[in-house]
């Protein structure tokens, strides 16, 4: 993908010398991207497996921890992220039709929605940090729903919460940076109806980040309301 930046004649569409034609070039990019996304699924998958094992062992602690998360903000953020996935779909559609102005507009909308998600997530973290509900020395949790619950086990829930949502938020930030670069390149007229593979690839990445959140949201925020 990085080699795409070097091409000179955008109207003819970019074709690297080791491919027969653009269809083959695109196919290679799509397969490579999905191979990368498969490693991402397993990367997060290990955390989901760990989460599931400890939820199986300490079900009461998982219910307690989940009830202390702000599910209203979580719901809003899920809606924001699903909407950003839709604006990415519209961006890919626009560039395939050669509508460069629409492409830039939809990419900017996506960046705005993604940034809103990260801001809300940061606020949620700030609330948890200010209440001391962070794994480590001095872990605190007040107003327990189930006074008999083991705080050590709830602390473990918050360990999974911060690592899983933190890793997810990191993917969001990486996505925002790549979207920003591609928006600039789109403004420079680098993508058109003949060549737009990078836009399609960042789209696949973004949808996977969305897909992972679709599982994170009910597993963390909505265990037992």
């Amino acid at each position: 993908m990085s080699a795409t930046v070097e091409h000179a004649d955008s109207s003819a569409g970019f074709l690297a010398h080791h491919f027969d034609d653009r269809a083959q070039q695109r196919q290679a990019a799509v397969i490579g991207m999905w191979a990368f996304l498969a490693t991402e699924v397993l990367f997060f998958g290990g955390l989901f497996a760990g989460y599931s094992v400890y939820r199986f062992l300490y079900p009461e602690a998982w219910v307690e921890g989940s009830k202390h998360l702000d599910h209203v903000l979580g719901t809003i953020n899920t809606a924001v992220l699903l909407t950003s996935s839709f604006t990415v779909v519209l961006a890919v559609r626009a560039v395939k039709r050669g509508e460069k102005d629409h492409l830039v507009r939809y990419l900017l909308t996506t960046i705005a929605l993604a940034s809103l998600f990260v801001v809300v997530k940061t606020y949620e973290y700030w609330v948890k940090f200010s209440h001391g509900t962070v794994p480590g020395a001095g872990f605190e949790l007040h107003d327990l729903y189930d006074p008999s619950v083991s705080l050590n086990q709830v602390e473990l829930f918050y360990g999974f919460y911060f690592v899983m949502t933190g890793l997810h938020a990191f993917h969001m930030v990486v996505g925002i940076v790549i979207f920003a670069v591609y928006t600039r390149l789109a403004q420079l007229g680098r993508y058109d109806e003949n060549y737009h593979t990078p836009i399609e690839m960042i789209g696949l990445y973004w949808h996977l980040v969305d897909l992972i959140w679709v599982f994170l949201f009910p597993l963390l925020y909505l265990i037992d309301r």
Partner: peptide, 10 residues
Amino acid sequence: IFAVSGFVSL
């Protein structure tokens, strides 16, 4: 098949 491979492994 590439798309499904990660989920099958998981």
